[in-house]
Nucleic acid binder design. Sequence first.
RNA 1: GCCGGGAUGGGGUAGUCUGGUAUCCUGUGGGACUGUGGAUCCCUAGACCCGAGUUCAAAUCUCGGUCCCGGCCCCA
Length: 449
Amino acid sequence: MDQMIQRPRGTRDFAPDEMEKRRYIESLMRKEAEIFGFREIATPIFEHAELFTIKSGPGILEEMYAFKDKGGRELTLRPELTAPVMRFFVNELTDMPRPLKLYYMGPCFRYERPQSGRFREFYQFGAELIGAKNPESDAEIISLASSIMKKIGLRDYKVRIGHIGILRDILRKEGVEGENASLILQKLDKKMYDEARVVMEEKGMSEASIKEIIGITKISGQQSVLKELQSFKGEAKEYLSQVMEILEILGIENLLVDLGVVRGLDYYTGVVFEIEVPSLGAEKQVCGGGSYSLAELFGGEKVFSTGFAIGFDRTLIALEKQKIEIPKKRVDVYVIPLTEELRGKAFEITARLRSNEISTDVDLMRRSLQKNLKYAASIGVRYAIILGEREMEKNIVLLRDMDTGEQVPIAITELTEWLAHARGIAPEAAGGDTKKRLGGKLSRPSDAS
RNA sequence: GCCGGGAUGGGGUAGUCUGGUAUCCUGUGGGACUGUGGAUCCCUAGACCCGAGUUCAAAUCUCGGUCCCGGCCCCA
């Protein structure tokens, strides 16, 4: 016991109940992405560290699981998925028809201090739409992200949409670009207006522009707030209006224009958005995205893209807080032989049911009937099949409905067919009247999955 | 990197202040029970996060570490 090996800090094990829930939510996300015409891709768990330092600077090495392999290569476990996807695109997918609509799901790793909704190994679900730069593409991406949230049953989420170009344009007019602009945007993102003001003054910006910028970042509300931007009539404003219009036509809910959404990253070029669940507290952001231009950083031509990444674990926490119901998976049948001699018969029946896609468990502990029934109940099986010598002489078994306790004899030859009906599986060998024959004898659960 | 709260069988807990044989619930395995109580009763196994120190004696006190929870910093 003392020598038990602990799981590394910030990682998790997932028990069957939890995996069932995770896979279920994941499948809803995938399904939605595919309904939108996105196709799945996967990239390696580790990459050259350079892939990420190019984009974010050498400072992030501190926050990555970076290591040298036996060939002396500087590698790292991937801290996110946008860069790998763009590398993949530049390397091998540039000749695919545009726009490319890709989605992905997988583990990422960051060497950070774990806290609520924050782990060292965490999962991201994301999508990228590559090769288009127009309002409808941004709307498509935002639409997918919010549709996923809706589909999985999340309530109380807000989609905050901004446009980083509006702020960048004003800064550019004042001659502030690159690093300096990023510094200011970072402060604004955290709503540290006083500090942002100090920096802007240092960079020699006019009082009017400073006031305007701070004013703009505070603008948030329905689409109509865009009208408040009267003094500013840039392309960006028009672009954002169009995005909002399309989203409205698409019927997307919980939208909020919020020009304070900044995302302090250099490569974001236009529309940026976040989805947050306020009840989550400090780690309330469950999704972030926007349009960007990264391909040229990895040696490709300049290609505009737009995408998002959902923090899968946080999203799950949000769903758990609102006590969402996940359909429970059940094993259909548990086969119990009453004597040693019947064990072979039990496996025979088990194999036949399994080959007909009826999920079947069989006694592997040589337990008594009572213990077996108890076990069957505790694992939540739907039907128990009891094999006894008396019935076997007549080639029948006892079929027990574990929910109701009802028990009926049934011919072995009819077992598969009957269960297939009860489960809602279309039986191969038609025989549709079997259902009619036996239908009244056992109540059939309505939640057949 | 910083601040706070924690860690006792698989899960949940009592005991810790005030040092002395570790409590209860639940779950696991088995039995009563050899063909039908998913009930009941019984039995078995199973823990003081790790290391050092103080002490006749440490789950308990001291120090160091690990991990968990929450909050900062950060969040590509």
